[in-house]
């Protein structure tokens, strides 16, 4: 399969008028294929937005090459490029007086004539875009009345109406609530798969990304682009390396950073239900109670017993036992220990 986008020795940044060039990232080499859904990660200010804008042709690269469909990006006219590449940006739009459908219809700009009259194929593309993001019911609502999540979907629909092989999406999940985040990523994933489009988006939502995408590109502290399957990046420590902060530890078991708390007690945890054990451990660690697996040097142990859909925590200390029916009450008890 041929890549749809190829970057060779690409350096990006801003060429200021009168200033020195401000270099953000250099020597990037990568390929993007159709059907890819790639999440671009990295700390704030690492150049995610600059990279997306450069790839979209909104700003010029400083050096190196971007090829789209085997042709250099500079060869394309503005209109041709607009038919291959679309973007959804982070800027929040104040679009009073525009209905959702009107916003989506703006995506047809590169296809209509000077008067902007929408033909049958344009209307079809608009309808298709709206139904892909499942907004048929609210397509005649005012854009400004939508929730942030709906606005993101409408802007995505606008990019879809543009009917391009590549979509760059800057921070689709920012500002959204949890269902909104899941929803927009689900829609994006489906579009990448069903419509065979390449979608590259930036995000800080590591957990969602971990569960929804197959490709992650991390711009690490050294300004290098690390690419891989998210699970690999966890196992080989790349993820940990890129985001490590002082006083935090990376838990490879859950794929998340946790605050490094000095464990002032250790306790043994036993139970059959993996999920209950996982979350109990989660809560204990957060509160400075270490969990160990062998009983050699502790006399205390927590047994988690599940009976008729209810969970019970049994703490055994020096032969005596005490029952709790929530992690909350368990923690209160454990903290009261000397």
């Amino acid at each position: 399969m041929k890549p749809i986008v190829t970057a060779k020795k690409l350096s990006i940044g801003y060429c200021g008028q009168g200033f020195e060039n401000y270099l953000v990232l250099k020597d990037l080499n990568f390929e993007i294929f159709q059907g890819d859904m790639i999440c671009l990660m990295g700390h704030n200010g690492c150049g995610k937005t600059t990279l997306l804008r450069t790839l979209a042709g909104l700003i010029d690269s400083i050096s190196g090459k971007i090829e789209i469909d085997d042709k250099n990006i500079d060869v394309y006219t503005a209109k041709e490029l607009a038919q291959i590449v679309s973007v959804v940006l982070t800027e929040r739009l104040d679009l009073s007086g525009l209905k959702v459908r009107d916003v989506v219809a703006l995506g047809r700009y590169p296809y209509t004539n000077i008067w902007g009259k929408l033909g049958p194929s344009d209307l079809q593309a608009i309808d298709r875009a709206i139904s892909l993001v499942e907004m048929n019911d609210i397509q005649h609502k005012q854009f400004s009345m939508l929730s942030d999540g709906q606005k993101q979907k409408a802007l995505l629909a606008r990019a879809l109406a543009q009917d391009t092989a590549i979509i760059y999406f800057d921070e689709p999940t920012t500002y959204l609530d949890i269902p909104g985040r899941m929803e927009i990523l689900k829609v994006m994933k489906r579009i990448a798969l069903e419509k065979n489009k390449a979608i590259i988006f930036s995000s800080h939502d590591w957990h969602l990304v971990l569960s929804m995408t197959n490709w992650i590109w991390i711009i690490n502290e050294a300004g290098k682009l690390v690419r891989g399957v998210p699970e690999d990046l966890i196992l080989n420590g790349e993820f940990e390396k890129s985001f490590m902060r002082e006083n935090f530890v990376f838990d490879r078991g859950s794929g998340s950073f946790i605050e490094a708390v000095v464990m002032d007690k250790n306790i043994m945890l036993i139970g059959d239900d993996d999920i209950a054990v996982y979350w109990t451990r989660h809560a204990l660690m957060k509160n400075g109670i270490g969990v160990i697996n062998n009983s050699d040097n502790v006399s205390e142990a927590i047994n988690i017993i599940i009976r008729e859909n209810s969970i019970k925590w049994v703490v055994r200390v020096n032969g005596t036992e005490q029952d709790f029916n929530s992690i909350e009450s368990l923690l209160v008890y454990l903290k009261s220990w000397p």
């Binding site: 503005a78 700009y109 000077i114 902007g116």
Partner: peptide
């Protein structure tokens, strides 16, 4: 003659450019 361009301009300069407006 500019009504189409003006319609797109409500999206701002970056979106307009990405839609192929000079």
């Amino acid at each position: 003659i500019f009504k189409k361009d003006l319609n797109v301009m409500v999206l701002g300069e970056r979106y307009s450019k990405s839609l192929g407006l000079s």
